[in-house]
Design a protein around this nucleic acid. Structure first.
Lengths: 342, 342
DNA sequence: TGTTAGCACTCGACATCATTGAGTGCTAAC
DNA sequence: GTTAGCACTCAATGATGTCGAGTGCTAACA
């Protein structure tokens, strides 16, 4: 038994209605609101078939039907295939980024807020990872007589800093000379290459040598920190708008997941190359999120995925709308990166 | 009618019990668990008095009594007066900060996590404000041929950066010269002084002049951004552990407040000079937090308050314990600042 | 004058029970 | 293949009764 066109229409009607109301939908509802040419009895037969096929679940015997993850999957695939994901709200989103924020962290925080208020779901925004960053410039800035600030400029426009102890005093000129030397030696290399270059230095136990190894160590830390992007979460409390989370226990476990950023990052990492991903219920792989869906879109610089924006909500999510908004947001962020790069 | 010693003991017993159980406490409970030498009838008389005095509320006529904010206030004042706030968990907190985090933002985020997991309430940690920062060093680091990264080192060890457009090309040496000039001119000044110095420059429409004014503008932004500290929130979902928030509507409004960081910052700003503050229920001034309390402690560098750590929980909070933990956390953060300063 | 025992009263919490209504599955007729 | 009809199921709702914790008051006691 396959799923013919009429079955599909009915399924779609059920999903649409359930997304709107969160109430199990019965045969009469469909017959009255969507398929007026069919009687409820006919619908019942079809629904019975759809249940057998695994597209519908029945909370209990005398309740209406509820779409299963499999149904949402079909629904979304259809959506994606049709390529109907228009970049909605383009203008309104752009408006939110008028005042150029200088720091990436502000940008992703802001983006998460905007996204959550547009969708009414919980928003996740991941900043660019830094694995492939290349060094452009290295500079030591004197802080006190015995310490200096190490600034590493990379091509991401991103920059990291740390206070490095300079054994004994070292004057401005000396620091400057070292900076030039380091820049010469390291520029164009990735962070891990740079670290290797520094570590490979001959072991002369001089002050300078000690400083270099401290720098190498620091680069290692930066690498580690940057290997995972930063994450901003917006609208965590939005989930409580939905009746499926009026159970406090459920809400709590959901919110707890939001607080462990590692899990979320891992989640956003998967399939990061895809322009869009939709993970429905169990597909998220996180037990606490079994009746949530995660929709993500990537943003890019050139051809390379830089980061991911996503939305988490109940499985009965307004997929079409969310995909549209995510697309717009992704494009906006891509554009932002572009112009930062200049 | 005053509040004699026995009344106070009874009130304290009621508060202690209610903090533990969240169940309105009746006269028999007190007579059995706390004041075994008195009968429940006597306790009842005293409780009746205490209610009349405004220290107790009665949810409904045949229920036990619940402490009013006024009661908590008395309780806490007593606690504070006795100076019994020992820095608890000193060691365990110190252990959490073993691996020195380099960036202030990581530190406050981490602190919020630790604080929330120790107290089981929601934690707030505010980073140092930067109003009174003094410039130590200014450096322009070349990024591309037409832009440079501006790095300003201040005495907070804190540093801000931005990409500045350099009109036309400018070689490394030129940037370096400008950096030295700026450092000479600005070091020792506060940010706002520095901005004034730059803005006061004669209007020569040269490239350099344009760059300087861009720098001045940037300093202005930094000032604005830094005027409010950064805020980290930890354990937002902890509030759901408490029965008073098993009502989803309440939980939602609480969590919504947590998402508007401005309000929280404002809250933490008040009385920032105090070593400790305790705001109970309505005293917070935020309607959504009427049955929450906010306890804060400050951390310092020298004699100056740098930032604030705080805990939000239900009014029936374990004030003693929380104050102890906050104190320890504050001291730990102060120490951290100290050693960063070196 | 303060303390206590006793007692009537109140009221939320909880369990029970009947009612209602939405929805199904099945069958027979169209 | 579609539809009307009907019996059946079951969650939700609301009424009812009981239970128990807790109070306030009074009278007796030390």
């Amino acid at each position: 038994m396959g799923i013919d066109e009429r079955k599909f229409r009915i399924l779609q009607a059920i999903i649409d209605d359930y997304i709107l109301t969160a109430i199990p939908v019965g045969s009469r509802t469909i017959s009255k609101k969507y398929e007026t040419s069919l009687s409820s009895a006919t619908i019942r037969n079809e629904m019975s078939d759809l249940e057998e096929l695994g597209y519908l679940d029945q909370p209990h015997v005398s309740a209406g039907r509820v779409p299963s993850p499999k149904a949402y999957r079909l629904y979304v695939d259809q959506l994606l295939q049709q390529g109907k994901i228009l970049a909605a709200n383009q203008e309104s989103i752009r408006a939110h980024f008028q005042d150029r924020a200088r720091q990436m962290e502000d940008v992703i925080g802001h983006a998460a807020q905007v996204l959550s208020s547009l969708t009414h779901y919980t928003a996740l925004v991941m900043s660019p990872k830094g694995t492939e960053l290349r060094v452009r410039n290295v500079q030591l800035v004197p802080v006190s007589s015995s310490s200096a600030l190490l600034v590493i400029v990379t091509d991401g426009g991103i920059m990291r800093d740390a206070v490095i102890r300079v054994g004994g005093e070292m004057d401005v000129e000396a620091l400057y000379a070292i900076s030039r030397m380091l820049t010469d030696r390291l520029s164009g290399r990735t962070l891990s290459e740079a670290r290797q270059v520094l570590s490979g230095e001959p072991e002369e136990a001089s002050r300078r040598q000690q400083m270099l190894s401290e720098i190498a160590e620091f680069i290692g830390e930066v690498e580690k920190q940057n290997a995972v992007g930063k994450l901003a979460v917006g609208g965590s409390s939005n989930i409580l708008n939905f009746p499926e989370y009026s159970d406090v226990e459920k809400a709590k476990s959901f919110l707890s997941v939001l607080e462990t950023k590692e899990k979320l990052l891992q989640l956003l990492e998967q399939n990061r190359e895809m322009a869009f991903t939709v993970r429905i219920g169990p597909e998220t792989g996180i037990p606490e999120l079994v009746d949530c869906s995660l929709v993500t879109a990537s943003y890019r610089l050139g051809n390379q995925t830089q980061g991911t924006v996503g939305v988490i909500g109940p499985t009965r999510m307004q997929y079409g709308q969310v995909l549209g908004i995510l697309r717009a947001m992704g494009e906006q962020l891509s554009r932002l990166l572009e112009q930062d790069k200049e």
